[in-house]
């Protein structure tokens, strides 16, 4: 109990003093995870929409694979990206290992399957409703994809938030490809892991509370946006 109280006090202190080191870590967390979500969305959402409308041999296998990839352990994703980006690996000359860009890539790889699988599920219901009408308008599956993405935008926002939550919370992948370098690739989760290993449990917990507050704030912002927009577009 003592530790919990200390953690809350420490968290408040960090917020109140706007500790520059902590602020930097927080901003990097946001920057990396939001960029990763955007990148993953660029691939994952259209893929999900296409899987919702397209019928082709092997579709079931693709869906099963995608669902399985939702459980991809972050460490494994991190390791794959590490081997790709390592100077001894195929993308080594880019010099991206141990940079925020590498962390963005790893998180994007981690959450793209989640975005694809969840958006497929969300948009399939919408497609069932729209399919006949869109075909009557002469819209084939390819043309239906942007329509579904736009009309499913509010449900997809929830999908994106799920992806963001996963990205912001994971530590395994960013630790491996980012290296937890102070002032450069240290994000909230790796900082929490570091403080835990230094035995400063109250500080680790305080950082954890701040991370949760940030994720909560992003969710609230998105929800508010959704409500405001839904009021005008139904």
């Amino acid at each position: 109990m003592q530790d919990l109280a200390t953690a809350f006090a420490t968290a408040l202190g960090l917020v109140a003093t706007a500790d520059p080191a902590v602020t930097g870590i927080l901003l990097l967390s946001l920057r990396v995870s939001l960029t990763a979500v955007a990148l993953a969305a660029l691939v994952g959402l259209p893929l999900g929409a296409l899987l919702a409308v397209a019928r082709f041999p092997g579709r079931r296998a693709v869906l099963v694979t995608l669902n399985a990839l939702m459980g991809l352990p972050p460490v494994v994703a991190g390791l794959l990206i590490y081997l790709l980006l390592s100077r001894a690996g195929p993308l080594g000359p880019l010099g991206l290992l141990f940079t925020p860009t590498a962390m963005v890539i790893a998180q994007a790889v981690l959450i793209a399957p989640i975005l694809a699988a969840l958006s497929r599920q969300v948009l399939e219901g919408l497609w069932e409703e729209y399919a006949e009408q869109l075909r009557s308008f002469g819209a084939g599956p390819w043309r239906a994809v942007p329509t579904l993405l736009w009309d499913g935008r509010f449900a997809l926002l929830t999908v994106l938030l799920a992806g963001f939550g996963r990205a912001a919370a994971e530590v395994g992948a960013v630790m491996i490809v980012g290296g937890n370098i102070e002032g450069f690739t240290r994000v909230m989760t790796t900082a929490i892991a570091l403080e835990t290993s230094k035995g400063d449990l109250p500080l680790a917990l305080a950082l954890g509370l701040m991370l949760m507050a940030i994720v909560l704030a992003v969710n609230a912002l998105a929800q508010g946006l959704r409500d405001a927009a839904a009021g005008s577009a139904g």
């Binding site: 006949e132 009408q133 009309d151 577009a233």
Partner: peptide
């Protein structure tokens, strides 16, 4: 064109719905 027993309306404004097939065309 065809009208269905239950109208299938897009999650957009009234005008955007009416314009949608025209844009498609």
């Amino acid at each position: 064109a065809m009208l269905f027993q239950r109208p299938v309306l897009l999650r957009r404004s009234v005008l955007a719905n009416a314009a949608y097939p025209l844009r498609l065309a």
